[in-house]
Design a protein around this nucleic acid. Structure first.
Lengths: 211, 211
DNA sequence: GTCATCTGAAAATGAGCATTGTCAAATTCT
DNA sequence: AGAATTTGACAATGCTCATTTTCAGATGAC
């Protein structure tokens, strides 16, 4: 019947909850990004993040929900970067906008191999709900590519083509390459990789289609 | 102490074993390719394939081994097709060999969406052992691409480039596209998709690299 | 100071399998 | 026919978690 609690340790209930959630997400990133989702257990995450299982279930309905929250935040971050990039390059030619947007999206994965593993590998086929989430998010990406590129076609910059096909190719290729780069040691410099990725994006989205 | 058994039902022990293995593999393909590896249980596979769990453990040490066997066979099949295709097009220009080999590899996945799901999604991050298997197999593919394309460079057909990067891009792109095609209904004709995939392979492996 | 609330740790519960063992019926060999 | 082997169904075991509950101590409100 407790309406909503009082302060404790100098923090409001909301602050305490947010702090626990932050620790859970940080630990989940570490464990899922290192051992994989299948090898991740709730007691394990709770122990490593110093949050009791009781508090865990006050925050999340279950294990899957923690993963969904984590993936949502990773994706939202990347999408926000893409939006910012596209705004920043508004009015510029597609040959500048596309590479900038792709690299903006990938920045979190290039900075942290755990994020790359979560977003590109662990997310796949983890569960029906998570798989649907992944495909829905990807569809948004496909639409963004289609919208931007179609507009560019209208401006006479590039030739029209099957944008869904091209977008899927780009997403698949970039996924495989970045995950491989994040895993391998030694590896080329981030700058070199980014130059290759920018070229790849241009080839797939802007160079004249065959046929 | 039984050395090795006698015939039963008109079949040798080896034949009976092979028959059970065949049923297990067929059922595993159906269940893993439909519900996913995470949702697959040994009792479930055994019931659906009419093999008792006792016999299952006479054939496989455990659950993971069935999946490994299935994936091994799927991969071996595709690799054999690639080898056959490359032999059949020996001496021909790279612009013919590459598309033919790529489509030869993909034939089993284009014929059966369950195979596409297993080879392209369920295999990812399923377990450390299976993930290593996937990456090892992919490395073989990367080497084949590198070998064939470098030879083509030597013949003056195409320009040299980072073949590992190009091969990973091709594998990643093709994976995403074929899985998407296998899942979506309605979908374009297989012929149309194959034409697009062939173009994609040519763009990534043979068209002049930027820079 | 006293009582209600909040906390972290740990124990308790329960479900879902993977894996092993049992056994009666079917088949083969001699 | 009779002994030995093989089979398939099913019961039994045990383990790994997810999820719930307990509880003694810490903290805040008044």
């Amino acid at each position: 019947m407790a309406q909503e609690g009082r302060s404790y340790g100098g923090r409001t209930p909301e602050e305490r909850d947010a702090e626990r959630r932050r620790r859970l997400l940080e630990t989940a990133k570490e464990i899922i990004g290192t051992k994989g989702y299948a090898a991740t257990t709730i007691p394990g995450v709770c122990a490593a993040s110093k949050v009791s299982t009781r508090h865990f279930y006050e925050i999340y309905p279950g294990k899957e929900d923690l993963f969904v929250d984590l993936y949502d935040r990773i994706t939202a971050d990347s999408y926000a970067r893409v939006a910012t990039s596209l705004e920043a390059t508004a009015g510029k030619p597609i040959f500048e906008r596309v590479p900038a947007a792709v690299l903006a999206y990938l920045d979190p994965m290039l900075k942290d191999p755990r994020v790359a593993r979560i977003a590109f590998v662990e997310i796949m086929g983890a569960s029906p709900r998570i798989e649907k989430l992944r495909l829905d998010y990807r569809e948004t990406l496909v639409e963004i590519v289609g919208t931007e590129c179609s507009a560019s076609v209208g401006r006479g910059e590039i030739l029209d083509r099957d944008w869904r096909f091209a977008a899927l190719a780009l997403v698949g290729a970039v996924t495989a390459i970045v995950y491989d780069w994040a895993l391998h040691q030694p590896r080329s410099s981030r700058e070199a990789l980014e130059a290759q990725l920018a070229d790849l994006a241009l080839v797939l989205l802007t160079s004249d289609p065959p046929g």
